[in-house]
Design a protein around this nucleic acid. Sequence first.
DNA 1: GTTACACTTCAACGATTCTTGTATTTTTGA
DNA 2: TCAAAAATACAAGAATCGTTGAAGTGTAAC
Lengths: 127, 127
Amino acid sequence: MDTATATQVLDSLASSLRLNIYRGLVRRGPDGMVAGEIAAALGLPANNVSFHLKDLTQANLVTVEQEGRFQRYRANIPLMLDLVAYLTEECCSGHPEQCTTYRQASRVSDGVLPALSRSLPPSPGGR
Amino acid sequence: MDTATATQVLDSLASSLRLNIYRGLVRRGPDGMVAGEIAAALGLPANNVSFHLKDLTQANLVTVEQEGRFQRYRANIPLMLDLVAYLTEECCSGHPEQCTTYRQASRVSDGVLPALSRSLPPSPGGR
DNA sequence: GTTACACTTCAACGATTCTTGTATTTTTGA
DNA sequence: TCAAAAATACAAGAATCGTTGAAGTGTAAC
């Protein structure tokens, strides 16, 4: 992932409306939701939701599939996982032993940081 | 984590400038950087960087410590890990077996999703 | 073929955000 | 105490974003 992609993804989620849409879709998993369903769930006008869905789709955070006259949306979970990798990439400049401090401070960190440490490149700056 | 916090964190990272600051700090780990060092590394005016550092600090994504006449900034990694948990919370409505599809699609997902599945609440909607 | 439905696109106004320049605060060293 | 350095606070202009209303596209039903 590059900076431009990461910024686009983060910006797409930086609105509470879009964040709620995305989280709702994550919750549904592979089933997804159709546009009207999303708008109804959030109590918002359809065109407004459509506007933000387009934004999420362009960022590749959600996917669309035509289904008769409905549009079914699904969350793109793998992209989120890649974003996390990008955000914590080169943590501690390739000295994962320093990350130990962090692992203790979060509920879920046990699973996350070891995975990231494993995929760490050798640190270009190499200090 | 609640929606307001998540939105604030995401919004803080949604600018390429702030994203670069944050990633630079992640890379430094516990050592962090002082404000002038950050501004120099990015080739930006000090007041502009200070503006965005304040934003990141208010979102709690970075911490500040006075050090003589310098201000040392460090990335708050645990908050990022909590954000990831929030974003993928209740994935597939508490049926983690559905998430198997996702795990295969990302380099780092092996470490992430199992951890999330383990910490999943019983799904309030409970369908 | 025509009508209704689901959804998207477009234009426009108000609100928010980003950058820059200037001034202020705090600390260091003489 | 005084001067210099590091960093932040404040104000103003340009640029961007979000919501709303009206119009448009495509699909399904009659």
